[in-house]
Simulated scan of single mutants.
Amino acid sequence: MTLTLVKAWTAAKERLKDAGIDQPAIDARLMLEVAADVTRTEIVTDPYRMLTAEQWATLDDYLTRRARREPVSHIIGRKGFWKILLQVNKNVLTPRPETEVIVDEVLKAFPETMAFNMLDLGVGSGTILLAVLAERPAAKGLGIDVSDEALAVARENAASLDLNNRAALLRGDWTAGLGDDSFDLVVSNPPYIASHVIETLEPEVRDHEPRLALDGGPDGLDAYRELAPEILRVLKAGGLFAVEIGYDQSAAVEALFRQAGASNVRTVKDLSTHDRVVTGVKNPLESLA
């Protein structure tokens, strides 16, 4: 079959729509861009360019996989986040717009020219760490993850963004082995979905994303119980933390951090007005006690 870009896009949209995919036009365009090696602009400005047989075969394969509810990010191997493009695969969570709330809070707190040292716990593909470092050239960071496969993805992303000289990536169990008062900033998007809820999630998440990065235990709060005191331990006095939460976990996570000694604890909503990030500081007066 020979098709132009515009006809290929239209056919792809219809096929995904028939398969019940939520955003068929966007998904079709993203896969067409990669399959035909074109940009979004080229699809619009050169709509009658012909696809080769190989390009159409690639797109056809992509569409078959998407109809089976494999995430687009896994199919094309990349996902945009904040202002960076990240490589992703089945070993890491697909970066989500909601997580950009953490980046936004961090950039408000740390001026562009400020030098600071950050820690990203459960770094995954490098999403938060690399987005912040890309915006703050004087900053350095450490990303820790228990998954060797996730760290391999993060290292590729750091290298492709030319940030590997400022981003260290290590395998570890949260903060184990890290010294007290070590970081100006600690961020984390830990697993926070209650175990029994996972089977009710959309197939793209339930069947294709790593359970290790999703399962937060019986009530979804296991990671925060461990992280709250440890984050306060490794933060410098006056240091900032920001952690992603589930939409209904604000009160519980805020309480855990207050109990651990955090000050100015508050919850920030995402663009959908759902509670999304709990943030606060380590009381600077503790160092004088």
Rank of each mutant, 00 (worst) to 15 (best):
A237C: 14
V132P: 08
L214E: 07
D46N: 15
G124H: 03
G217T: 12
A57I: 03
T58K: 12
W82I: 07
E33P: 06
G238T: 11
V72C: 00
D215N: 05
I76Y: 04
M1I: 00
L119T: 11
T10L: 02
A35S: 07
N283L: 10
E112A: 14
L16V: 01
E149G: 04
A53P: 10
R78L: 12
D22L: 13
V265N: 11
V38Q: 10
A255M: 02
R225N: 12
D275P: 04
R225L: 00
D184L: 13
T279E: 03
N117C: 15
A139Y: 09
H208Y: 10
G246A: 06
L170V: 15
T52G: 12
L151A: 05
I245W: 02
N89Y: 06
T41Q: 15
Q23W: 07
E42Q: 14
L201P: 08
D60F: 10
A131D: 11
A150R: 15
P229W: 08
A139V: 12
W56M: 05
M1L: 04
L3V: 03
A228R: 15
T279K: 06
L185V: 07
L235S: 00
V146E: 11
G246S: 11
T10N: 05
L161R: 07
M118D: 00
E204Y: 01
A237E: 14
V38N: 10
Y192S: 05
D275R: 04
E33F: 05
Y192N: 05
T64G: 06
Y192R: 05
A223R: 08
S195Q: 02
P97W: 02
T45C: 09
A159F: 12
N189I: 00
P137H: 09
T41P: 00
S188I: 02
E42I: 08
Y247P: 10
E54A: 15
L59G: 08
K17M: 08
L30N: 04
G122S: 07
A251E: 08
E156V: 04
L5G: 03
A223Y: 04
P203Q: 12
K140T: 15
T39Y: 11
S182T: 07
D18H: 12
R266P: 05
R96W: 02
N283K: 03
Q87F: 12
S125E: 10
T58L: 09
V243H: 12
K140S: 14
R211S: 07
P284V: 08
K236G: 15
A25M: 05
L271H: 05
D181K: 06
I76N: 02
L271C: 07
L151M: 13
V132A: 01
V186E: 03
L271A: 05
V187D: 00
I76E: 04
F257W: 07
G143C: 10
H274L: 11
R29L: 08
F110E: 01
R225Y: 08
P97G: 11
A152P: 08
S272Y: 04
L30E: 06
A262M: 06
E112F: 13
G261A: 03
F81K: 00
V38G: 10
G172R: 03
N164I: 11
K140H: 15
G216W: 00
R211I: 00
Q87P: 01
N89R: 09
P97S: 13
V123C: 12
P95A: 05
E135W: 05
W9C: 00
D173E: 11
L232A: 06
